[in-house]
Each structure stands twice: as C-alpha cells, then as structure tokens.
Amino acid sequence: MLYTAEQTTQLPAEGFRFLTTSFTGNVLTITLNRPEKKNALNPPMLNELAFALTYAHYATDVWLVVLAASGDTFCAGMDLKSLSKIDTETASVPAPSGPVQLGELMAGLHKPCIARVQGSVYAGGFLLIGGSTYVVAAESATFSLPEVKRGLFPFQVLGSLLDIMPGRTALDLCLRARSLSAAEANSLGLVTNVVSTHELDAEITQLTDELKQFSPTAMQFGLRAYQQLKKLPSGEQQAYLYQQFQELQQTPDAQEGMAAFLEKRQPTWGNAT
C-alpha cells in the first residue's frame, strides 16, 4: 500500500482535484473527473486514485467500489504531456510512499470493484478495467491500445490482460492496436456486461444490490486469496487456502451466515474486516 490506514481514515474534507466521490448503502463511487482531458491520468490524479482506493480498502463500511468517469471518454490512459510539466497547484492528498502502479493498486483493493464504462477506453485506462471485478460497458464504448502507433508498448496492460484472456489474444490487442467494440471486448472477457447507455446506471444498481446480499467479509477474503495465489508455488497453494478457510470460519460474518442458514432466515452482515 502506498498510503497507511492512518493516513486514509477519511477522504479529503475539501474534496479531490481530479476525482469526485459519493457513498451510498456501503457502495463508494469514485468518478474520474478530468473530462476536458478525456480523463487522462496525470501524476496528481494517480495519487488521488491511490488515496481513494486505499481508503476503500481499509474502510469497514465500504463493501463495494464503483469506478466511473465523467464526460464522453472513460479514460485516455496516461497524460504524457503532464510528465514533462511541474505541477504547482496544492495537492489534495499527501505524496504516496512510492510510484503509483495502477495494476498493483487495483489488485490490492480486495473488495469487488465495478467499472462503469460510459465511453472509450485507451492505453493505460485498460489497467482500471483489467483490475476491476466487473466491467459494465455501454454498447457504444470502444477499447483500444494505440501505443505501438507511437513507438511504445503497453507492457503493464499486457500483464493485466494475461489474467483475463489467452496470451496470443492479449498480444494481438497490443500488437495490432485495433479498436474493439463493447461486444467484441465482452467476447474476450475484457467486459462482463454490455448494455445500452440509458441502461447503464440501472445495471450497476442491480449488480451492487445483488452483491450486497452476500457477506462482505467472505468476498474480501476470497479476493485477497485470488491475488495471493498468483504469488505462491503450486505446492503451497492448498495449504494457504485451507488456512484462509479456517480463519474465515472464525469471523462474525461466517458465524452469522451459518446461524441464519440453520434458522432459515436472511443473514444480517456486519462490516468487512
């Protein structure tokens, strides 16, 4: 984590410069809010994302995260022009302890994250959707990795794509820089749900309402285990998973879930741990 739990006990009182947030019914919505630059990611915006996602990770009343964007583009990737400029405005959050790597940032959330994709996604924006648990896209959205057209290569995106699709498919997207429709992205597993633009919010609400019926603690344990398995040798994985099951059984949510099952009632979940 690039911020500590102590640093992120609350979101900035004055708000962020390049993000907006809202919190309703255990769902934190983080909205990229730099529409005049097609939500291109500059260093201050990356720091704010790191802070907001760390807050979501540690906040026990946050069960789910929705990642949205304002304007007609979800994210244009990195703002390359900003890398050569010095930002003189007052920062909304402290400096992180290291460079912000979007792939690692998303993997460290350990809570279900739903990307609400209302417009096009380019380049580094793929790290946001690749790291989300669900990607709900408007049927008009498009997806493209144009780096090779500029003499670059989407190295980090490739790593993210390899978790989602076969290697040759991921390489093809990086090498040919072709634009995918939402339907094509769905067929490759990059997108999980495709709806019309006017159905986007209703689909997000339906998905969050469904997920909120289940134990936030169990989901957090499961998502953490999913990431940890990638780091463990195959011979150590089953022992780790058994240990996680033993630990989860001791949590209030697990005890409530079993009691509700035996008493034939709906469980009342506590906050994620």
Rank of each mutant, 00 (worst) to 15 (best):
T268E: 06
T90V: 12
Y240S: 01
N193T: 15
Q228E: 06
N33S: 01
N39P: 15
A107M: 14
S179T: 08
A138Y: 12
A91T: 15
F245M: 13
F143R: 04
L161M: 07
S196H: 05
R34W: 01
T20K: 08
F74P: 14
L207V: 00
G235Q: 03
S181E: 02
D201P: 04
P233Y: 15
G108Y: 10
D72A: 13
V100Q: 13
V157Q: 07
K111W: 05
M106W: 15
E48C: 03
T192L: 10
L46H: 09
Q249N: 07
D87Q: 00
M106Q: 14
Q237K: 06
T73D: 00
L223S: 01
T31S: 14
L207Q: 04
L180Q: 08
T197K: 11
F74D: 03
G257T: 13
A141H: 03
L53H: 01
P267K: 15
K38T: 00
L53A: 02
Q213I: 00
Y134T: 13
A76C: 05
V117L: 13
N47H: 12
S179Q: 07
Y122I: 05
T54Q: 10
L190S: 02
L158P: 13
V117S: 06
T208H: 13
T88E: 03
W63A: 07
A183F: 05
F18H: 13
L171C: 03
F18A: 07
T251A: 00
R150Y: 12
T24C: 12
G124W: 15
R150K: 03
D201E: 09
V148S: 00
R150D: 04
P166T: 11
Q244F: 10
Q243N: 01
L171K: 02
Q237S: 11
K264W: 14
V157N: 08
L207T: 09
G130V: 02
A95N: 12
